[in-house]
Structures are given as structure tokens and as C-alpha cells.
Amino acid sequence: MATPPRIFDPARRRAVRARIAARQMRPDAARFVIEDMVEDVLDRLSFVRHEPGRTLVVGDWSGSLGAALEQQGAEVARADVHELDEEQPYPQSEFDLIASLGTLDTVNDLPGALIHIREALKPGGRAIASFVGAGSLGHLRAAMFAGDGERPAARMHPMVDIRAAAQLLQRAGWAEPVADCRTLRVSYRSLDRLVGDLRDQGLGSALASPAPALGKAALERARAAFLQAAGPDGRVVETFEILTLSGRRSLRGT
């Protein structure tokens, strides 16, 4: 089997996640992406009438999902990228539910990570994985290109689109696979506030080969380019496409 390309650096990935706690101490810290993901998972479980027992929640730094599931009677284990290598077999298995929030977009081997989730479920167990997908942050991308000028650098992650996600679920052997996407729209008066919101939520760069920091002139070009997309109210509406993958492990256990 071919080794997947090394796009993301595990150490940088852990560092990005580690900074969340400190940034969330700020009174105006953003948390709308994780809040949307938690609400969506609970809605999906209610819709399919799945009452999880033994549950693993990965990546929910807010703690909200685990707390809500425990109130419903679930036995909840929690993990983040510091404790769990999602590209390796899970140390525990036989989970009735695995919910992964905001982490799978920065693994190097996404097909392998999806297989490991399936294998950590008990037969009939359900998995739900959400992360920021393709089509997100278009104005930020344009601003970074403008800042770099004639020598653009790789500053933002490659992102998975919904069609590729559906194919990956089938390859990973998930039963009843579903891939869907929803859009969050958030308005900003400055590029700096958008970047701050990304850092608050652990959505900063974890690229293995990070680009050099923008110089002062380049940063000013990026700021100006970002504001060119502003509407009559002076605000730029940025989009976050939240991709969600869901499915089950076959009752046959494979």
C-alpha cells in the first residue's frame, strides 16, 4: 500500500489544538463552528432515534457534546489529537457511537482514518464526523493570494469536497454512508478578526511545509483585498462549509 503524502505535520496539528484553551479564555472568543457541529450531531441522533451507549467523542474541545450525551445516559470517553492518533488503529473498540468534530480535515491518511473509525465501532454502531470542507473561506484565500502577489505561497489547507467524501466513505466500508454539507455565513469588518476567529477555534494552519509569514506590505495588501469584498454595510460575509460524514458498521462486523 502506498504511503499517503505528508501534507500535515502532527506536531503543528497538536500545537494548533493546544492553543484553543488559552484563546477561549478571551471574553469574545469565537466558538460558532464547534457549536454548530455539536448541535448537528445531537439533531442527527434524535432524527435516527439512535440512543448511544458506549461513546467516543473526538475533538470536541467545548465539552458540550459529551455532556449532552451523558445526560441522555451514554457512557462517554473523550479524546483529542494529543491522546489519539487517528491514522492508527484505536486503542479501544466496540463503541456504539464515535463522533469526530473538526479533526479529520488535517490527517494525512483520511481513508485510513475512516477505516479505523469503522473498526472501533461495534457491529451496528454509528459514526458521525464533521469538519470544514471545500468551498470554505473563499475571501480569505483571495486575500492571501493578493498579499503574496506574483509569488503565491501555500498558506491554507487543501480541503475535501462532498463528492470525494462520499467516495471515501464507500472505500472505507461504512454501511449506510451519507455525506452532506451545510454553510455557515459569518460577517467581518476586518481580515484580522477573521484570522482571530480561526485561531480561537483551532482552525489555523497545520501544514507540514508552512509558508513564511506575510511581511508588512504584503499584509496590508491582503487586508485591502479582503475589504474589497465588503457589502454596503462595510462587512465581508465569509463562508464555512461544514462537511459531515455519517454511517454505521455493518452488523456483520466488517
Rank of each mutant, 00 (worst) to 15 (best):
A30Q: 02
F32L: 08
A153E: 15
T103P: 07
S62P: 11
A68Y: 14
P210S: 09
R12W: 11
L207T: 05
R13Y: 13
P210R: 04
P152Q: 12
A217C: 08
L203T: 08
L114S: 00
E220C: 12
R19N: 12
L56V: 02
L184G: 08
C181D: 13
L245F: 01
L97D: 03
R141W: 13
D192W: 00
A74L: 04
S190Q: 13
Q201V: 05
L45I: 07
R252M: 09
A146I: 08
V160D: 15
P177I: 02
T55H: 08
L203C: 11
H116S: 02
E87Y: 03
D197V: 07
E176Y: 03
G215K: 06
I115E: 05
R171W: 11
R249H: 09
R193N: 09
R23P: 09
T106M: 01
M159Q: 14
A67M: 12
A129F: 10
A11F: 06
G138L: 06
T3L: 12
G196Q: 12
T239L: 04
D28W: 06
P232F: 05
R163M: 13
E86T: 04
L227N: 07
G73W: 07
D109L: 04
Q170V: 10
L214W: 15
F95D: 02
R163E: 15
D105E: 02
G125R: 03
M37T: 11
P111Q: 01
G147E: 02
A154K: 14
S93W: 08
D80F: 04
A99L: 02
